[in-house]
Nucleic acid binder design. Structure first.
Lengths: 193, 193
DNA sequence: ACCCTCTGTTGAGCAATGCTCAATAGCGTG
DNA sequence: CACGCTATTGAGCATTGCTCAACAGAGGGT
């Protein structure tokens, strides 16, 4: 088996086991056993367990990024709305998996130069800034908005099915508006004093 | 040494070591050594390492909650403003410590009925709802706002000192306004369409 | 056909760590 | 002084992250 295939296989196994327990608690033996290889081989591909951990979380991040990206050709506020919708879908349909991802990326936050956690946040914040033609000064607010969006999505996805589908459209509208409002520093400053 | 003192001592040690490495990576031996006791004793007080972990994070959460609580007698929007200010202070003055807390609480998020992470979030959200007399329907937005506030505080506290002190007042004003706007569902819906 | 190298792979083994348990020490009480 | 209670110990077990020297077998050059 070629190295690239092996890596994919191993990371793939991590992505699946991920849901059940945090990657940190996952033993190398288990992964190796699931792959039908020896412990040693895993260390051949990922010199450290943390490296493996990082690879798995990074792959998860890329997957989410793919899933929430808007269709080609959709631009402006419509793109933002689509991202919000897809983000809600993502969190709703695979809630535990997403929660596991949040945990995994947080565990890695220490000494992570290419912090894989940032993948999704950066992507969404960038997209929002671009599509709404926001000034550079609005970037922190846009990033904060992503945190807001994620929290709302996690709360919402924990609701019983009935309330969830009922409130979905309102939530989308609210979050889209929220981005505009939070990044419109002048308006918001005057709004409440 | 009385059991209560021992517990306090052990948790206190955890609170201090906490900054350097995640509680999860902290070995029982180290804690025991720092306390001048044997491994075994630690397991006498905290049957599982996770229990110890939880105790430390819970204590950290209580400490933050104390630090951000507004003064007695301060009510309404002033109370919210004070919480925001104190929250920024907290994150700024002990950034690594706060980051460690975020990590610690996330690590525990699995199967945590009395999730200590919630301590601070719940506290701030409750306070905001109460002081601004928000309806129950605004609760999710208030919780989301806490996530927004935390993210902004973490971004801001990473800035070089100059920009930090310059932007501080604006950030406080922005966050206080943001709470009002995010929870005023009608306004925000109409505001941007 | 033989050997040789290169690389994916193995498995034994080390050190650290979470955890258990029987035994001890020290103190207050009858 | 003896007794019991409880905080405390330290040896020991199983697991786990990680190292390393050795193996297998496919391809190529002679």
């Amino acid at each position: 088996m070629t190295p690239q295939e092996r890596r994919r296989q191993l990371v793939g196994i991590g992505l699946r086991m991920f849901v059940e327990r945090p990657v940190g608690d996952l033993s190398v033996d288990e992964v190796a056993a699931a792959a039908g290889v020896s412990r040693g081989l895993l260390f051949h591909y990922f010199p450290t367990k943390t490296d493996y951990h990082r690879a798995v979380v990074a792959a998860a991040g890329r997957r989410v990024r793919r899933n929430v990206a808007p269709d080609d050709g959709v631009v402006g506020e419509a793109a933002v709305r689509q991202v919000v919708e897809r983000f809600l879908d993502q969190v709703e349909r695979r809630r535990e998996w997403y929660v596991a991802l949040v945990r995994g990326r947080t565990e890695l936050s220490r000494a992570a130069p290419d912090d894989p956690m940032e993948t999704v946040t950066e992507f969404v914040a960038d997209l929002a800034c671009r599509e709404l033609a926001l000034p550079a000064s609005a970037r922190p607010a846009a990033r904060g908005w992503v945190a807001y969006l994620e929290d709302r999505a996690l709360q919402w996805s924990a609701l019983p099915e009935r309330e969830r589908s009922a409130g979905r459209d309102d939530l989308v509208a609210h979050c889209v508006s929220a981005l505009a409002v939070l990044t419109a520093t002048d308006e918001i400053r005057g709004g409440v004093s």
